[in-house]
């Protein structure tokens, strides 16, 4: 078993310390417009209350969450906690007592549409230029989840599907990953089941088929370790990168294929 320190020694690119812990979320109702509320999760080991609002998946106040993020000094203190940004939150089955704080003078954040959002069908979409290159995509997942996260995973799924649709005919390799390493986090041993890797890959395969990709063009694999095709999907966070699906799209008329004997 690998022991993971509560406060990881790793220092992210922005200079902040990385954290990974499990705790119960508290909602602060800043009442500053839609989606303006704050999510705070205390790390019981250090006593630090972190602001995890930047995570694409927000907590459920009835459930514990796995928090993964990097401290961001530049983000100020809009909610009453040390800001984690980037951050990821995974909602766990473990129960918590719900609790809500008043604004207490904190403004929260005015909602702004995240950069990673799926565009509507009625908007014109830029098509890839010919000759088509091999496409490499990554879809991230929350811990123990095979749900396509809104305004994160769906953005990458949409990019994958659009490219696959644009460059057909193409061979598509879908490789699922799960974080099967047993690690201790906040006194709990956590690990994903190995089966989740294939479930994630099958989910992506089904999504491709539902959007019109022929099933016989898609192969599904299970992967282990390695770096994701698209590291940006994890914003520099190491642990979430182990929970993903990588997709390689090889257009039959690609430059790469032409050179293959």
């Amino acid at each position: 078993m690998i022991r993971v320190a509560i406060l990881l020694a790793a220092v992210a690119a922005n200079g902040g310390a990385a954290v990974r812990y499990i705790g119960c979320p508290v909602y602060r109702d800043t009442d500053n417009g839609r989606k303006s509320g704050c999510w705070l999760v205390e790390d019981e080991a250090s006593g630090v209350r972190y602001d995890v609002t930047a995570a694409p998946t927000k907590p459920d106040w009835n459930h514990a969450v796995l928090v993964e993020g990097v401290q961001s000094a530049a983000a100020g203190d809009p909610c009453g906690g040390t800001v984690l940004e980037p951050a990821r939150v995974s909602v766990l089955e473990e129960g918590c007592t719900r609790h809500m704080l008043a604004a207490e003078g904190y403004q929260g954040r005015r909602f702004a549409l995240p950069e990673r959002n799926v565009r509507p069908l009625y908007e014109e979409r830029k098509r890839p230029d010919r000759p088509f290159a091999d496409g490499r995509f990554t879809i991230p997942f929350d811990y123990q989840s095979r749900f396509i996260t809104y305004q994160l995973s769906d953005y990458y799924l949409d990019a994958t599907i659009n490219y696959a649709l644009d460059v057909q005919p193409a061979g598509i390799e879908v490789t699922g990953f799960a974080d099967v390493r047993k690690v201790e986090v906040s006194g709990r041993t956590i690990a994903e089941p190995a089966s989740l890797a294939r479930e994630r890959a099958e989910l992506v395969r089904n999504a491709l088929i539902m959007r019109g990709i022929a099933a016989d063009r898609i192969t599904v694999r299970v992967g282990r370790g390695g770096a994701p095709f698209v590291p940006a999907a994890f914003d520099g966070l190491a642990a979430p990168a182990a929970r993903r699906v990588d997709i390689r799209i090889v257009p039959e008329l690609s430059e790469a294929r032409r050179g293959t004997p």
Binding site: D29, D31, R34, K35, G37, D60, N62, F147, T149
Partner: peptide
Amino acid sequence: KTFLISDTAGINSPIGFGNPVRNSCVF
């Protein structure tokens, strides 16, 4: 006019908006 939407499947789960989430009728 925003308000706290809580424990409402299809909004507070499984999408990831959070439970609760503040929004209005046009959400």
